[in-house]
Write a protein that binds this DNA or RNA. Structure first.
Lengths: 350, 350
DNA sequence: CGCAGGCGTTTAATCGATTTAGCAGTTCTC
DNA sequence: GAGAACTGCTAAATCGATTAAACGCCTGCG
């Protein structure tokens, strides 16, 4: 029952522990082939695996990574980021400590200390929403930021390319023939940077399509189905000429609300109204009727990227700026050409 | 930048490292108050925190727990279990290693070995669905099972009390006056134990209400919105006399499908059809219209329980059987009295 | 034959803590 | 006043690995 130690292997093979260590770690040392084989055989027979704690103490490298996140519980995205980070760690023989701080600064500070005491080789600081965060004072150099931008630079970071994602989404609507496209934005005291970036992307596509932005088509609501429904109601209350034929929603839940608002007025999606969401939240987007065209957040890939940088396998292209991970568009069935009247209307203007 | 060691504290306080260790660990040793204060002051001044790796090697206790789970990514529940486990660990100064095996046995075996090499003080083996699992051979004694039942006993385990949850759900329907209550079950080659347990609870309530079970009201579909919709369609195609006035669904997604089926026939919930789900999946249950009455899965509490047992803070009441965690019913708006005709029908039979 | 040098292996230091046994010095006891 | 008992602290062993330095032994060379 007691663990097998290196000295047990040494005894079994009739050599010193030094030799065992040299052999098992493939150190380029002068060890005869006969001895090598004997050691390896002995190790296999007694079922030896080195004690990581002892090794960590000696080598000062624990093959361990600390992953600090503000909230793990509340979002289904968390798992995908973890999964990506996890997979890379495993592929390289690392283990990960997970700490959920619940956005509590005291907990965060303690966690960082505890992880440092455990001699983690690197730390990843993850947020559940793309936003700007203050760098905790005690966070060691070399830590990687995941799904957030450190307020002071000097740290590698990876975030979704929200701007490009919005561009893809709105271009899809323009390509379908829409000219009156609304942006159903979040309404919060401190909107996440994603809100602004997606708005930028939205405006960029309008500009490249020669469509003048209409402030009446930029509405806000809170990040829920209800918020999306209310904001959409305001859009659909607009006079026919001003009313949008397509909606670009800040997220899938708001898009779900837009569905409700449309259904209540007897509008059919996408015949009467096209809708694009953001996030590709499986339980929402795929379950809607019709399934929602949306933009996927590359959580898994971001998790991988962060861990790869943490392990030193990859170095950021531009150490000064966050790495932008592409957000692929997921085509489903909520986008179609604008209704005939509106289409002719848009043709008139072109 | 270099870490502060215990010898630095010793030097600063003018004592030996032994004394520093004795003081800082509150060992009942004969140390004068003056020295105690001096050591503590010195430790605070130089900012000393003990190196957990070195301490772990010496004490053979790492204050570290390994949490192995089959899938973390795919379910929103995972986070809540983690959160519960995490919170308990943090409250007691433990750190947790998280490993996601993706249900791959090789990965699982390697993970168990790696965790053992890291000298974790205990392991928790978590599944994302309540089911029976084979105990991996290398899993150390004392490991705790979370949301699954070990095939061979001898391990503490915690699972949701699916039977009692179903009882509460079906009782709510009976209390509202329903007599024709269907069970919309999962349809899988190897249904989870939860499926059977909930069926048992369902039958139990029918029996106690003096309602004879009708096999036609036990339908199956796959665990998705579509599966729920199809199964519900079959129920609603039944002749009026046989048609259920209430549905107890295996989970919220299937319940969402039931909503769709009902809406398509112009049935209003709960006036024409009452529905109860299971899982309390926020993004589904709370967002439905009307919000779904459902039974919550106590993931957070199960996570806490498992960690408490792992840390030895709590001992299972009955070491032989899994601990059953209560599933509270969450009352929302999808349950009402049966429609007049059916109600009179039920009254006729009573 | 004596010595340099190469080869294969071992000795021993080391990582940074904890902990037991023991060492001085003081006080108490008879 | 000698030994016992107590007090306050430290020396050194220990946990289980890694690794630089050293140590025999053998061979080759002059």
């Amino acid at each position: 029952m007691a663990r097998v130690r290196i000295s047990d292997v040494a005894a079994a093979a009739g050599v010193s522990t030094a030799t065992v260590s040299l052999v098992l770690n493939d150190r380029t040392a002068r060890i005869s082939d006969a001895t090598r084989d004997r050691v390896r055989q002995a190790a296999a027979e007694v079922g030896y695996t080195p004690n990581s704690v002892a090794r960590g103490l000696r080598t000062q490298r624990s093959r361990t990574i600390g992953l600090i996140s503000d909230r793990i519980a509340t979002t289904p995205f968390a798992g995908r980021m973890l999964s990506g980070a996890q997979d890379v760690a495993r592929e390289h023989g690392y283990l990960v400590f997970l700490v959920d701080t619940d956005a509590d600064e005291t907990v965060e500070r303690e966690a960082i200390r505890a992880l440092a005491d455990q001699q983690v080789d690197a730390m990843i600081y993850a947020c559940m929403w793309h936003r700007v965060v203050d760098v905790p004072a005690s966070l060691p150099r070399g830590s990687v930021f995941l799904d957030c931008r450190p307020a002071d630079g000097g740290f590698p970071a990876v975030v979704p390319d929200d701007r490009a994602g919005a561009v893809a989404a709105v271009r899809a609507l323009v390509a379908a023939g829409h000219r009156r496209i609304a942006y159903v934005d979040v309404d919060e005291p401190h909107p996440p940077v994603a809100s602004f970036l997606r708005h930028d992307g939205y405006l960029e596509v309008l500009a490249e399509a020669g469509i003048g932005p209409d402030p009446a088509l930029h509405v806000r609501g809170d990040t829920s189905s209800a918020g999306g429904r209310e904001a959409t109601d305001r859009l659909l209350d607009l006079p026919a000429q001003q009313r949008p034929t397509a909606l670009f929603c800040f997220n899938d839940r708001m898009a779900a609300g837009a569905y409700v608002a449309a259904h209540r007025r007897g509008l059919v999606i996408p015949q009467d109204l096209s809708i694009v969401g953001y996030d590709d939240q499986q339980l929402v987007a795929a379950e809607l009727d019709p399934p929602l065209t949306t933009v996927a957040l590359p959580h898994y890939e971001m998790g991988r990227w962060a861990m790869e940088v943490a392990l030193g396998i990859r170095t950021p292209d531009d150490p000064g700026a966050p790495h932008l991970m592409p957000c692929p568009i997921v085509d489903r069935d909520s986008v179609g050409p604008p209704p005939a009247t509106a289409a002719s209307d848009s043709r008139r203007r072109t």
